[in-house]
């Protein structure tokens, strides 16, 4: 591969996000992380759903796939399973991942395909002009809501945990450096990594703004929080880790933690597939048909 500079990862296409949108910070962090890990753009695919956030792939020089609203995870998993050598990142908004795509969010956790999912959480449906997102709290009223939100909020971290994500972290869109480090770690994690990003939307979310977040955020790792859960941890230890996770994942209000919450070693779906598919991953679907089909052999069970 050619030597690439940071700027080479950035596409010519100019983002059309509103000025001050948190999405810019996430894009920069992702671009930096891919650059620092020297990812080959021709072997990297960024998938997205539909929303403001989901335009991200168009701003990066790599295989970018802007799918359907809510369907980023199954599409991305299909590509990764078919070609396990690709680096696969999925991105999308809170509405995309936890509203219309919530079923896929849960199911992806059960599989643990080796990829990274970044959820841009602005608590609103940005692209459709600010309706309540699934992470907006009950009774909260952002700018375009005619009445306070009558529905409650999903806690993305707890849901990810319950679903089986093996690496769970939270970042902040304006902490680009910190976010970059989290993305790098998520990319290097073996299994499905979930990165929840607090993403201010200056246009529609007038409750949880940069000013609101700034004094509240703190870094878990600065307080000595250890997210690592090795394989075969004794049950009491595991219980302790889970309690610690739950406590921090639920913390919201005066203090809001960011950092890595959970990092477990669990066999990936690619490894599990081997039980069904003896020659996987050496023979992976994207390679196509390499040997002729043993039709004779297959027809034996039907012989009359």
């Amino acid at each position: 591969m050619l030597e690439l500079k940071l700027a080479d990862y950035k596409a010519e296409k100019q983002p059309d996000w509103c000025p001050g949108c948190g999405d810019y910070g996430i894009l920069s962090a992702l671009q930096m992380a891919l650059f620092e890990l020297k990812k080959d753009p021709s072997q990297t695919a960024v998938f997205s759903g539909i929303g403001c956030s989901a335009k991200t792939p168009h701003y990066l020089n790599l295989y970018g796939v802007h799918t359907l609203h809510g369907r980023v995870l199954p599409t991305a998993q299909g590509a990764k399973l078919a070609n396990p050598h690709l680096t696969v990142v999925a991105v999308g908004g809170d509405g995309d991942g936890l509203g219309i795509g919530a079923g896929h969010f849960v199911a992806a956790g059960r599989r643990n395909v080796d990829m990274l999912y970044i959820l841009y959480d602005n608590e609103v449906y940005g692209l459709t002009k600010g309706q309540a997102g699934p992470t907006l709290g009950f009774g909260e009223k952002t700018k375009s809501l005619p009445k306070p939100n009558p529905q409650g909020r999903i806690n993305p971290l707890l849901l990810a945990f319950a679903s089986g994500y093996t690496w769970i972290a939270r970042g902040y869109a304006y902490d680009v450096k910190g976010l970059k480090e989290l993305i790098k770690e998520g990319l290097e994690h073996k299994g499905l990594a979930f990165l929840h990003v607090l993403q201010p939307c200056p246009t529609y979310n007038d409750l949880h703004t940069k000013e609101w977040f700034a004094p509240r955020l703190y870094k878990l790792q600065d307080e000595g929080y250890d997210p690592y859960v090795p394989e075969g941890l004794p049950p009491e230890e595991l219980d302790r880790k889970m309690a610690q996770f739950q406590e921090k994942a639920a913390e919201w209000g005066e203090r809001i933690p960011i950092g890595v919450f959970w990092k477990a070693e669990v066999p990936t779906f690619e490894e599990r597939l081997k039980a069904y598919l003896p020659r996987y991953p050496e023979v992976y679907p994207a390679l196509g048909q390499r040997e002729p089909l043993d039709l004779e052999g297959l027809l034996k069970e039907f012989a009359l």
């Binding site: 799918t67 998993q77 070609n83």
Partner: peptide, 27 residues
């Protein structure tokens, strides 16, 4: 020649989009 990765998905929306994702890699 019958190495087919078969994935039981969470619903048919995932079934169709996952197949599309796989096809995009040439499978």
């Amino acid at each position: 020649g019958a190495d087919v990765a078969v994935v039981q998905t969470e619903d048919e929306i995932a079934a169709v989009t996952m197949a599309v994702g796989a096809a995009l890699t040439g499978a």
